[in-house]
Amino acid sequence: MDLENQKRVKEFAEKYGAENLVVVLGAAEGEASGLAAETVTNGDPTFAGPLTGVQLGLTVYHVCEPEIKNEVDAAVYDEQVGMMEMVLDVDDIIAEMTPIREDFCKYL
């Protein structure tokens, strides 16, 4: 996750409270999704950004995960995400995201 986005996530958590935030990711594959998820839960694993050592424990999902899909109107989801759902390896993304949520999310 780039440094500017880390800074914004940190500011939002301070302003609205970490328990009130949900981070929705749109990364193109599992590894990148996992890295971003880890950054907003357990801290920046690359030790480069403002979230280094900051364990926000935010609730985080990829937009293709069923928890998010089920929240969205089916027609809107199909229009906005349907094509990418066909392209992405959704199972791989879920496999990367689930353990990170289980280990580091504080507000599930």
Binding site: A28, E29, M83, M84, M86, V87
Partner: peptide, 26 residues
């Protein structure tokens, strides 16, 4: 670097759009 195969991602997207339009089979 975790950015995947960028040309392939584009071809998959173009192909997926083709599937949605009925130009090709899934």
């Amino acid at each position: 670097a975790g950015a995947g195969d960028v040309p392939m991602a584009n071809y998959k997207m173009i192909g997926a759009l083709g599937v949605k339009r009925g130009d090709i089979e899934k």
